[in-house]
Simulated scan of single mutants.
Amino acid sequence: MRDKRTSKAAVSVEHVVLGRAVRELRARRDLSQERLGFHSGLHRNYVGAIERGEINPTFRTLLTLSSGLVVPLSELVRLYERRRVDHIPAEVAR
């Protein structure tokens, strides 16, 4: 899957949906990527790559992101699961 705005390919639809969940939680807390990176101990460019679905973050990275967002990891996963339903093709959902 290639994003038309960038030259980098997304890892998978699941990673794009995860990135959107991270972006939504970050926006709810009114944090910039730079600020989230600071609170998480991650570089802002890395946070951006996660949000765009360009990389496959490790479990440890997801834990540090949830810590920086001040939410339990389960909330990030719950939001991912809700958003993922929106991306299931109609023929698969039946």
Rank of each mutant, 00 (worst) to 15 (best):
R20N: 14
V70C: 02
G41P: 14
R26L: 06
G48Y: 03
R44A: 14
T61V: 15
N45W: 09
V71R: 07
A27I: 11
A21N: 07
E54N: 06
P57M: 00
G41N: 07
I50D: 00
Y46A: 01
E54S: 01
R28K: 14
F59H: 13
N45E: 06
R26M: 09
L62N: 04
T61E: 00
D30G: 06
T61N: 05
F38T: 12
L25Y: 10
R28L: 14
L36I: 12
D30R: 15
R60D: 09
P57L: 00
A49V: 03
L62W: 07
D30P: 00
R29M: 07
G68N: 03
D30A: 14
N45L: 12
S67C: 03
R52F: 07
R44H: 15
V71I: 15
G68K: 01
R60Q: 11
R52P: 09
R52H: 12
E24T: 14
Q33F: 05
L65V: 15
E54I: 13
F38S: 06
H39K: 15
L42F: 14
S74R: 14
N56E: 13
P57A: 00
E34N: 12
V71F: 04
R23S: 12
V70A: 09
L18F: 12
G53V: 10
T64I: 02
R20D: 14
E54K: 05
P57V: 02
E34I: 11
V17L: 03
L73F: 15
N56V: 05
G48N: 03
A49W: 05
R28H: 12
L65D: 00
R26Q: 07
F38W: 10
F38P: 01
